[in-house]
Design a protein around this nucleic acid. Structure first.
Length: 260
DNA sequence: TGGCAGGGTCATA
DNA sequence: TATGACCCTGCC
């Protein structure tokens, strides 16, 4: 695969939290199958977004030197096409947490409620199913996983999915409608919805605004105001692939590659 | 060791 | 639309 930086994309970029370095490779359970960063079947290439031409992205942010710089510096950073449910669970857990703790919460929930798999002597866990989470006890989940108030979000959202919420149809809806639908789920506000749309529904115009993106949009794009306002301005300025650009900007800001 | 901040959301007014 | 509460912990 051309220009694919597995460590950057799967581990450092904080768009997925369940990939683990084992030996000299990255491994995770995706959709009930063990997957490695070296896989290159059609499913893997799609998951790693290998069918997109990322060189075009540099031209798309030509009007914004800081964006162009971030995209150029982070060649090899892909935006993943994760299963919607997996992105949903991970980003509900992400709320008001730092990256190391999100990783540990995703792990704890998977270990407790997901299926175990063995790979080269290591145990890996898949994401818990909606059914499994829907029947979980809130207090017990809090005690075991330490996920705090997010236990209620997880359980309620899992119950909605079990009760017929059309999660698999979200990716085929118009963007605004998809976003509104996701936000009816417990624990899903605008930011989490945008992450699910970007990382789990192929909407490259989704633009998650967190504390880092808020700061960099203030400093480098002179955009201030509510996060919803910042999001709309980003779409207007950067276009329909603003989510892909956001990912480069987010990582550059968080790691000090660009000043804040 | 204390205290802040973290890929926010919800309830309330 | 704006404000405060919220589980817990990584990190300075």
């Amino acid at each position: 695969m051309r220009d694919f930086d597995a460590g950057l994309t799967l581990f450092d970029s904080a768009q997925a939290f369940h990939w683990r370095p084992i030996g000299d490779e990255f491994v995770a359970v995706v959709n009930g199958h063990i997957m490695t960063a070296a896989d290159d079947d059609d499913f893997a290439r799609d998951y790693f977004d290998d069918f997109r031409d990322y060189t075009k992205l540099i031209d798309e942010c030509a009007d914004f030197p800081i964006a162009k710089k971030a995209v150029e510096m982070l060649k090899g950073l892909r935006v993943l096409n994760q299963p919607t449910w997996e992105a949903l669970i991970a980003f509900i857990l992400s709320a008001n947490n730092n990256v190391p703790r999100i990783r540990s919460l995703v792990y704890a929930c998977s270990r407790e409620y997901g299926e175990a798999y063995e790979y080269k002597g290591e145990i890996l866990y898949g994401f818990p199913s909606p059914e499994k989470l829907a029947s979980a006890d809130e207090a017990e989940m809090q005690r075991i996983t330490r996920c705090g108030y997010r236990a209620r979000y997880l359980i309620q959202t899992a119950r909605s999915v079990c009760d017929g919420f059309p999660l698999d149809e979200i990716k085929n809806m118009p963007f605004d409608e998809a976003r509104r639908m996701l936000m009816t789920l417990m624990g899903v506000g605008g930011k989490v919805a945008d992450c699910v749309l970007l990382f789990g529904c192929r909407f490259s115009q989704a633009f998650p605004v967190d504390v880092w993106v808020e700061r960099l949009m203030n400093k480098w794009f002179s955009v201030e105001g509510s996060r919803e306002h910042i999001r709309r301005e980003a779409v207007r300025l950067l276009g329909n692939n603003c989510g892909l650009i956001q990912q480069a900007l987010f990582h550059a800001a968080r790691t000090g590659l660009i000043e804040l």
